[in-house]
């Protein structure tokens, strides 16, 4: 069953601050970028003002991601009282390890809960649960 929303119930929006604004702006354009320190060549997530490795505050850059990764872990939301009321159960939240090494969470939009497994290849896609809101999501990918 693909991911479905329940009309009339707003989806909670991401909190956008100066550190993560470029990320969400890119998602609006259906582009997927990750934050990297150009001095240490290390990616990190969530976005932040300072490289936690070398403490540089001016070497941070936004780099296009391959958008590919693997399911690192996942949770199936199957019970009403645990699920968000604006989304049809069951739905799946996946924790994806990107090829760049960082991990992000989102929904998987095109898989049945019992299809999802740790190590499953996925790639970034986008959806728009309501007007003015674009989210990055994950979909199945051939390995």
């Amino acid at each position: 069953m693909p991911l479905e929303y329940i009309p009339g119930i707003p989806i909670l929006r991401p909190y956008v601050d100066p550190d993560n604004q470029p990320f969400w702006d890119a998602v609006d354009r259906h582009e997927f970028v990750l934050q990297r320190c150009s001095d240490c060549d290390v990616y990190f997530q969530p976005p932040r003002p300072m490289c936690p490795h070398c403490l540089s505050m001016d070497s941070l850059e936004w780099v296009p991601s391959s958008g590919r990764g693997e399911v690192y872990s996942f949770v199936v939301f199957a019970a009403d009282r645990m699920a968000y009321p604006g989304m049809k159960i069951p739905y799946v939240v996946v924790l994806v390890e990107m090829e760049e090494g960082v991990r992000l969470t989102a929904n998987i939009v095109d898989a049945e809960p019992d299809e999802v497994y740790i190590g499953m290849p996925v790639e970034v896609t986008y959806n728009s649960p309501m007007e003015g809101l674009t989210l990055y999501q994950f979909k199945k990918r051939a390995s």
Partner: peptide, 14 residues
């Protein structure tokens, strides 16, 4: 400042 408070805290602590 044009920056968020996390950014300011990082700089002062560093």
């Amino acid at each position: 400042s044009g920056r968020d408070e996390l950014d300011l805290a990082c700089e002062a602590i560093k």
